[in-house]
């Protein structure tokens, strides 16, 4: 078949809402866009283990400890599903990790903010996972088969994460005055960074157009952000907390809240490496990887010695 015939088949699949599979022909920039998006997503899960893992040894009850362990472990699992989805596009895990460790690949900027108190673990689960889920639900119907299937599994498992976060916020908000203050403080610090998670305003989002055309994305940044605000404000009210935005107001005409834009200058700075924890996160990932090298080599050497491995490598 000639190239344009291939392209026709590809476009046909998109038009019919069919999935594109690893062996199917796909345009180069579709492949590149996917590798970038899926690996960013995977890296976010892995780096995201750090701020939450930060509190595992300090979880204030035995129940909270097992729940947090299970949750952070789930994030690792999700990173793994996504790495293997990216690998079907012809890039190896080693290369993907190398891109992360050298700072070449990005991950969600939200994880460059610190988790300072136990309430931050609540806020991360409730707000950050809540925002992530909005993206993820839509990605279950994305055009690339392995990505969509990974997202189906992830969404199924994520469903407890946001509840876990909200439960922590509930305990704090209806707890002692100190606890409630801790909850409000966390909301104050996480509100705008969470709003940034949906990406720059549509007018300034360079990758959106293709992403929507290819069904790699199905709603725009601003649409998702609005949806998030509408969904979250009643939850804040239930908790008896205050959204740290003086301009927040119900707009009857658009049946949604008006809100202040996050600080996009800060956003750009955090993305380009100047957030409070960028260096620390990358250092932690590099350290784990480098200190794990002898472990992986030992496993490789052992497999060769015992010939237990089906010449797979």
């Amino acid at each position: 078949m000639e190239d344009n015939k291939f392209e026709e088949v590809f476009e046909g699949k998109l038009a019919k809402n069919e999935m594109v599979e690893p062996k199917d022909w796909m345009p180069d920039n579709y492949r590149k866009h996917l590798i970038r998006q899926i690996s960013q997503h995977a890296h976010s899960e892995i780096v995201g283990m750090l701020p939450e893992g930060n509190w595992i040894t300090r979880a204030p009850s035995l129940r909270a400890k097992v729940v947090l362990l299970a949750k952070v472990q789930d994030e690792g699992g999700h990173g793994l599903y996504l790495y293997t989805a990216a690998e079907t596009l012809g890039i190896s895990r080693d290369e993907l990790l190398n891109n992360l460790h050298t700072g070449k690949a990005k991950y969600s900027s939200i994880f460059n903010y610190p988790t300072l108190t136990w309430a931050d673990i609540g806020a991360v689960g409730w707000l950050v996972d809540g925002a992530a889920i909005m993206n993820q639900v839509m990605l279950q119907r994305t055009s690339y088969g392995p990505y969509a299937r990974a997202m189906v599994r992830i969404c199924k498992e994520e469903s407890f994460h946001q509840r876990q976060g909200f439960e922590i916020m509930t305990h704090l908000s209806f707890g002692t005055a100190d606890q409630k203050a801790m909850a409000q403080d966390a909301l104050n610090r996480w509100w705008f960074p969470t709003m940034m998670m949906f990406g720059p305003p549509d007018s300034e989002s360079p990758n959106s157009e293709n992403a929507i055309k290819w069904r790699i994305k199905r709603e725009t940044n601003d649409q998702l952000r609005q949806k998030f605000v509408n969904q979250t404000v009643p939850q804040v009210e239930y908790l008896g907390l205050t959204v740290p935005d003086a301009n927040l107001k119900w707009n009857e005409a658009k049946k949604g809240y008006d809100y202040s834009e996050p600080n996009w200058v800060e956003f750009k700075n955090v993305i380009s490496g100047n957030g409070p924890c960028n260096k620390q996160r990358l250092l932690a990932r590099n350290k784990a990887h480098n200190e794990g090298a002898w472990v992986r080599e030992a496993a490789q050497a052992f497999a060769r010695k015992r010939k237990e491995i089906y010449e797979a490598a």
Binding site: I46, M49, L62, L69, A70, G76, L80, A288, E291, G292
Partner: peptide, 29 residues
């Protein structure tokens, strides 16, 4: 051992050791 969570030598093993941590925290509880 839960200090290793997020810092394991590779991802699959990170998850495996965390499973052990989860099991034994459950027993302790």
């Amino acid at each position: 051992i839960s200090e290793w969570t997020g810092h394991g030598p590779f991802l699959e093993e990170d998850l495996a050791l965390t499973n052990i941590a989860l099991d034994i925290t459950g027993v302790a509880k």
